[in-house]
Every structure is written in C-alpha cells, then in structure tokens.
Design a protein around this nucleic acid. Structure first.
Lengths: 185, 185
DNA sequence: GGCCGTTGTGTACGGTTGTTCCTATGAGCC
DNA sequence: GGCTCATAGGAACAACCGTACACAACGGCC
C-alpha cells in the first residue's frame, strides 16, 4: 500500500478564494499570526503554493482579508445582541454572555482577538481593522449606554479579554458581571 | 575619504551582556519584537553576530531577559508610587500619573507593553513574565484597594493601555481619572 | 468543434533567519 | 615572563521565507 497521496482539491474549485480566507483564520487561531505563512496556509487548505499569490497579491492582503472577515462576523453578532436587548440591564447581561460565550468560551475567538491586536500594533492596514471594530462595538454599546460610559466599558472589556488571554485562571461570568455593573450599573 | 568604518566597541568589553539586554529593549521599542533578530540587535549594539549566541543560548532567552528587566523596572516604579500614597484617593491619582506619565506619555513604555502582550500570547516563558507583572501590579494596588477592586482596576488599566496603543486619539488624564473613580472611587 | 482568457500548478530565485564552529586575543594568575 | 581560559570575532550552513514566472488545463463563447 502506498502512502496516502494527500488527496488534492479538485482542479476546478470555485470559491477557493473564500476558503483560503477561512483557512487563514484557522491557521492564525491554531498557530499564531507569525506562523501564518504562504506555505502553512497552502498546506492547511490543501492547495498548491502558487494558488495563494494568484488569489491575493500579497500575504499582507490575505491576512487583512481574513481579519476583516472575522471582525465583521463578531461585530455583527454583537450588534444583534444589543439590538435585541430591551433595556440597559438586559444589554449588560447580553454583554456578559457575549464575553463568556463567544469570546472567552471558545478559545478560538479569544486567540484571534489577541493575534489581531498584535498584528495591528505594527501594520497600519490592520490597525484600521481594529479601529473599525472598536468604533462598531462602541456604537453597539451606545444603543443603551451614554458615549462616555460606552467608551469606558469598551476599554474594560478589552482589558478583561487580554487578562483572560494571558492569565492561567479564566475569569468567571460573575466577576465580569460585577465589574460591569460597578462601572455602568 | 573612506566610508565611516563603524567604530567597533573595544575588544575587552565587560558588561557587554548587560548592554545587549538594554539594546534589545531599544530595538523592540523602535521596530517591534518581530524585527528583534540577532542581526538587528548586533548591529544596534555594534557587536559581532557571534557575540549574541555566546552570551545567550538562544534568541528566546535574550528576549525573555530583556522583557524581564523592563517589567522589573516598571513594576518597581509603580510599587514605589503606591507605597508613597497616603490613602486611597492619593493612590488613584498616583495611578493616573503612572499611566499618563510613564506608560502613555512616553511612547516607548506603551510600545514595549503591547509588544510583550503580543509575544507572550505565544511564548509560555514570556507569559510567565506577564503573569508576574500582573500579580505584582495587583499587589501594589492592594495596598489601598480590596482584592476584587484591585483586579477590576488592573483589567481596566490594561484595556485603557491597549486602547491608547491602537487608537489614533490618545486618552486624556481626565478620561482616565473619571473611569477609575467610577470603578473604585 | 475550436479558440481564448481565466484559473490552477510547480519550480526556482534571492534574501533573511537562528545557530554552529573555528580562530584570535588578551586579562589574570603562577 | 609564560600559561590558560573565558571572551571576542567572523565566516559558513541549513532552513525557511515571499514572490515571480512559465506552463498546463479547462469553461464559456463564437
């Protein structure tokens, strides 16, 4: 029996561009943004190396597309939660759920957030993505909070996320809830 | 006239190991942790390439030594401020000064903090450094705040720092002070 | 059916990296 | 003065990177 020949994706492959963006996010989440090289992504997506430079002019462009897609999804999900909340109290509780469920619950989203922070610290194009994210999340919060409070809550949330990412012990929902209520309650 | 021969450091060079650690911090602050290569650091310190692997078994070890030195300095400076504060109100004001003066005032410390976050997200050795920093700063805060509040303030501060690093508009002392007082006032 | 342009593929190139290794040097001790 | 060994120095190596490019294949239009 020959060794497994690594089944190639079919030659005609519409939507490969989309799939490459998703695979890039997977690689970043699993191995970090510095490990997200052309070769690593090509291997993960099971496509030849040249396919990446065909679909994306540069690696930076591919990374930007990937982070943009991720931020769009997270921001939209969050705004839905805020729109659904009837009042301020419900909004804060929805925020707690957003944090414990989406961000801190799945390591994936947490890791992606931190990797984006990291990459954005040096790449102006990615910094635009993070600024878009911050302003969108602030706008979502402002559905139930005044602008000043929204900004403070946004910063606190950012810190909680980073804390959880770097700490050994994860933060509990109760701790998050109490901090939020003290700031915006 | 020949081109400048790049004056070499003298052959006998006691304390070079220390100087390499400082230079590493400079390179990280100016060009980011990903640009802190053996060659970049050697060039900045004006020493031959081989000198780095002689003094430090690996690049990771050098980076860890550099971040450790920096964290030690910042944490010690902060604890001094907290020790000097007579009461809770003074402590909060000292924290504002610490943030606006040391961290946000000089871009250098802010950049170093974010670069450390970034690097720590992937390197367990560096994560130990950040955890040490967090626990020390929390302990300093606990000189005037109860543990729960200290933890929340620490998280908020982390978020404010990150916000300032990634945002275009820096955060003002007044905004920081008002957020802190709302949380711990 | 035959052409053509879009899409897919594999290889090669120039550059940078961390690390190793051999040699040269000189400060401290006898 | 002579020995010795920790330090200084520079070249070399293997691995990896992003990107370019020439060629193959196929769908859609005439």
């Amino acid at each position: 029996m020959t060794s497994a020949p690594a089944r190639r994706a079919r030659r005609h492959d519409p939507g490969r561009r989309d799939r490459l963006v998703d695979t890039t996010l997977d690689v970043i989440a699993e191995q970090g943004v510095t490990a997200a090289t052309h070769r690593a992504i090509a291997r993960a997506a099971d496509v030849p190396l040249g396919s990446l430079t065909y679909h994306f002019a540069s690696l930076a462009e591919l990374l930007a597309a990937a982070f943009t897609r991720h931020v769009d999804a997270v921001a939209e999900r969050f705004d839905e939660r805020m729109r659904a909340a009837p009042d301020r109290t419900a909004a804060l509780e929805a925020l707690v759920e957003h944090l414990t469920g989406d961000l801190l619950g799945s390591q994936r989203d947490l890791v992606l957030a931190v990797e984006l922070y990291v990459a954005a610290a040096r790449d102006p194009a990615l910094r635009a993505v993070t600024q878009d994210w911050m302003s969108r999340s602030r706008r979502s919060l402002e559905r139930h909070l005044d602008p000043v409070t929204a900004r403070e809550v946004d910063a606190l949330v950012e810190g909680l996320v980073l804390h959880s990412a770097l700490s050994t012990e994860p933060m509990t929902a109760d701790q998050i809830r109490s901090a939020l209520h003290r700031l915006a309650g």
